[in-house]
Nucleic acid binder design. Structure first.
Lengths: 237, 237
DNA sequence: AAACAATTTTGCTGTTTTGACAAAATGAGG
DNA sequence: CCTCATTTTGTCAAAACAGCAAAATTGTTT
């Protein structure tokens, strides 16, 4: 292959070499116990009725990120959600109907805040990430990648709070990280660690629903976090 | 948008909504001082003659990874190279000629081993990653992303060795990490840290080119590394 | 009113890791 | 044998980590 070959073909590709671009979203939620993902039943053949990630096709005038945002809004009614690209999946026959390349994004939402209407409308359902049914195509693979990325990201950035309500207890926060990392953490060490980061605001309110003594509620304090600039959020598993 | 709308359009998209898929490679090398990237002069309009990443278009029957491997082989003559996906870039007008979405991969090669012929043939040239010229389209952005990914990855996996010859000195290894992380490291602490990982084989040979005393050569020992399974390679900056 | 129950809250301590720091060893060249 | 540039090696204090248990709170029961 010569320099010319390589270069002259760049803009002369046949339409046939263009492919469909999809975006699939791994929507994570947390319900005080388990890390969950939102799945929908596929409405068409092939694989009709099977569980699938929420997704859609890229439109002409939008970026992948815009498409992911649109899909997220469509299925949950939420916007301004934390999202991160996971990877792009391109196995030639990953979609049996037509060649489609799909970029996966994961998103973190507060499971209590999304639109129940939409979830019902789309036959969507929350599953424990660890006990989800077999998904269509390479979606299981996407979930695995997304989990890895989420785990990696939570060690350097305080994104876990996106999965919790605005006010939460230390115990909930700990359970969240235990769910994400699939590990057990020591209560005392966890609390000490979180406190040393100095990114939470301790409220006067208590959550009285889980114990007689009640446990203090905390808020993630963006300002405090910003003031730690340089000192990054770092948590070891 | 109803469930049906969302789903029935999936396979009825017009050709017009398909797009070209490109792969661009950030090829990293190291020359005992600087982290380098391999760039080529673009051969066609627009932006003809400007510096660009090496890249190409995805073929019908290949995955993105296969395309990246092919491109890498085309420009360097090398195969079996460490590669990692960086991200997929999809700004609508990133390519002024036609909508093209590009997935970036970075690759790590031993700068001494690639084909000089091919580099000459393609008018390719090595630049310090920190002093590279302005690149076409969003390629500067891609390089930045690739650098971040490389930095992140080197903290958890011993991939730096792919940038060095088979035998190297501790000083070279240190300079490499200093280049990647753009930081200064303490000689003693660095060597202690590396030794504590127990993944190198110390050879009897010395490199006599840089000092009278000479410095011992080391080899990365894959077996030793495997035996550390679980204990991951972790380096702090 | 006292005892109880369930959960939250709070240090302490030994060990490991980190990071700052300087002197001795080597061997070619003069 | 001295010089010299570079490599090689070790100590120590501070911080981070990980393992561990008792006290406090408050609604409920007796």
């Amino acid at each position: 292959m010569s320099l010319n070959d390589e270069h002259t073909i760049i803009y002369s590709y046949d339409q046939a070499d263009k492919v469909l671009i999809a975006v699939d979203c791994i929507i994570f939620g947390f319900d005080k116990e388990d890390l969950k993902i939102l799945l929908v039943r596929r409405g068409i053949e092939p694989e009709k009725g099977k569980w699938s990630l929420v997704g859609g096709l890229l439109k002409k005038e939008e970026t992948l990120e815009a498409a992911a945002t649109r899909i997220l809004d469509t299925y949950t009614g939420l916007s301004g959600i934390y999202m991160e690209e996971v990877a792009t999946f391109s196995e030639v026959n990953r979609d049996p109907v037509e060649r489609t390349i799909s970029t996966a994004y994961y998103a973190l939402i507060n499971i209590k805040e999304h639109s129940k209407n939409l979830v019902k409308q789309f036959s969507a359902k929350w599953f424990s990430a660890s006990q989800a049914p077999k998904l269509i195509f390479d979606h299981d693979h996407m979930v695995q990648y997304a989990l890895n990325r989420l785990r990696l990201r939570t060690t350097t950035e305080p994104i876990g709070f996106d999965l919790l309500p605005e006010k939460f207890t230390m115990r909930e926060l700990q359970k969240l990280y235990e769910a994400i990392w699939d590990t057990k953490l020591d209560k005392r060490n966890f609390i000490n660690k979180i406190n040393s980061l100095d990114i939470l605001e301790k409220l006067d309110e208590k959550d009285m629903t889980t114990s007689r003594k009640g446990s203090y509620l905390y808020k993630f304090d963006v300002e405090k976090y910003r003031q730690q600039n340089g000192k990054s959020f770092e948590m070891k598993v």
